[in-house]
Design a protein around this nucleic acid. Sequence first.
DNA 1: GCAAACTGTACGAACGTTAATACAAAAGTT
DNA 2: AACTTTTGTATTAACGTTCGTACAGTTTGC
Lengths: 342, 342
Amino acid sequence: MAKPLARLKDVAEKTGFSINTVSLALRDSPRIPPETKTIIRAAASELNYLPNYVAKSLVNQETKSIGLILTDLENPILTHVAQSIESHLAKAGYTTLFATSNNTLEVETRMIETFRSRRADGMLIFPTNHNRLDHIRALRQRNYPIVLLVGSGDSGIDAVSMNEQMGAYKAVSHLIGNGHRAIALIDPAPALGNVEKREGYLQAHADAGLAVLPELFIDPKGHSAEAGYWAMASLMSRADKPTAVFAANDSLALGVLRFCAQAGIRVPTDMAIVGFDNIEFAEYAVTPLTTVDYNASRVSQLAVDRVIELIRHRGDLPPPRNTQVTPDLVVRESSTCLRDRG
Amino acid sequence: MAKPLARLKDVAEKTGFSINTVSLALRDSPRIPPETKTIIRAAASELNYLPNYVAKSLVNQETKSIGLILTDLENPILTHVAQSIESHLAKAGYTTLFATSNNTLEVETRMIETFRSRRADGMLIFPTNHNRLDHIRALRQRNYPIVLLVGSGDSGIDAVSMNEQMGAYKAVSHLIGNGHRAIALIDPAPALGNVEKREGYLQAHADAGLAVLPELFIDPKGHSAEAGYWAMASLMSRADKPTAVFAANDSLALGVLRFCAQAGIRVPTDMAIVGFDNIEFAEYAVTPLTTVDYNASRVSQLAVDRVIELIRHRGDLPPPRNTQVTPDLVVRESSTCLRDRG
DNA sequence: GCAAACTGTACGAACGTTAATACAAAAGTT
DNA sequence: AACTTTTGTATTAACGTTCGTACAGTTTGC
């Protein structure tokens, strides 16, 4: 922590007032006359005094900090969420304690403990596994303010998220509407227990009265462009080939796009592609990508608002609320209507 | 902070030992016999005791936290830096306080104050402007451990960064070596006072004995793909058109690529493109992008190591050190040799 | 068999702040 | 003129830890 920083005591000694008077003056208490304040403020800035938030936190029993735990920042959209959350929190006077769980429950659990030990006033968590939430639920039951960043139906924990199922439903329905009957699903999440997008896919088929072909489901084992590339390679080496692909995020979709470019598969003529998230590069891809828009700043704002509201309740939390933001489908060139094809 | 958490006092009362004994036992002091430790540990875990880091920080005069200030997370490579720094810090037992300056000096200054007030043991800063470092230098002179994440020659502040000038030099020399004589430079940084890449560009020309055409410099006013797209549009509407483009980052380069695709400019046949950072999408673009590899994890590791070393010196810092990591050029399809062209 | 050394535990002060309360001195009231 | 009120400042006790020291009780040494 470097050289000893000035304390209230130093300002007190310099001005001849007591520590308490200095404290009150610097916090602009009405009990201190203006002239005294001026003197004290001058001395404080001369000594480069900065209030010690650690001490303040100890006595106030609040740290004005909140923990943010994400799985990783590989997905550009989580990046936007992170930045957006940080700036909303800063605006509300909170400091962000940041950590990534690296998609492991063990690290997630450890970081939650760390933040609790640091007495973060609340936490925003993008959990590794949408079903294994017991450790988080236990905290919430002890009235710790926590907001999840994924939809979590009846988990007993507050949540603010995109409605991924609805997004997937819109995307797949769009493809079905365009005449596609063999739509591949590239999604690593079901293997990790997170089935929202797959549910949307299934629902779209059910509502259209279409059968689902399980051989068109593939786990890319990752969510990078590279993973998407190889997933597509695998799909195209099979007997039953898709005419369209729904990828669980845009990185995967861009990998798919790259495979198509190399394999001479024309997009959208031979293959329609829909992604998820609407990252910037989706618009600037060879073939601009149809995708589901993840409204990161709206989700962030709502999540921050909610966690602050929970903090305000101080120890007697209201029943958990599950807020879902409805995503829009952004239709671009990569999924033009089948009927329009030459 | 929710319901009152168990304190040492509670564990003490439950076990009948004094607060001090409990504290020593939980910290595994040799002065406490094993049986006592067992009893105390059992009681602690039963009460769900977690040490209060706030109180601990106050008495130890260190918080085991460091502040990380980035300009924004728009650039995917900064994202990797952020994640990498966080995990290295976590490994070393530090918590990351995170903030973005949104590219304004005012926010940067405010966040530095916030982190100082929170008594972060040190800071890692990606400064808005590589020349306006007085506020940071002042801190360093008061022995505050700070490491910049950009090269800063003689700034009097520790720094760990990619050698951007060298990277730009390699990129532009590569283009010159391939026969290009009209190489555009798309770089928003010089307008903000950060001239490293431009210097590399100039050096490459000087070493090759080539004149520089100032009309090939353009400020895209941003570092997104969109900014790159419009910068390229502007360049191609001018009288003297480039045969190659060096873009200050891959997002810009992908925007350039998109413009070329739309305008029917073939890459690399009609136009060579080199980017900077080597983000994942560079490899998966229509035409895989030649780019300068930003070794995010190496920079992060060195920066974290350095700040921790500074913290260890406690109040009597060694002279600042400026570490530059030499970047490699990754040659891909987007800049194939002019001489090879049909 | 009594001083010296060691063992296990406890006490009190400190870290830098805030908040409740106390208390002089000045001003206002009757 | 004595009594209350107001005003400005100081005193004291917290907040939950750690650390230096104190102090019993037990063991060791000769």
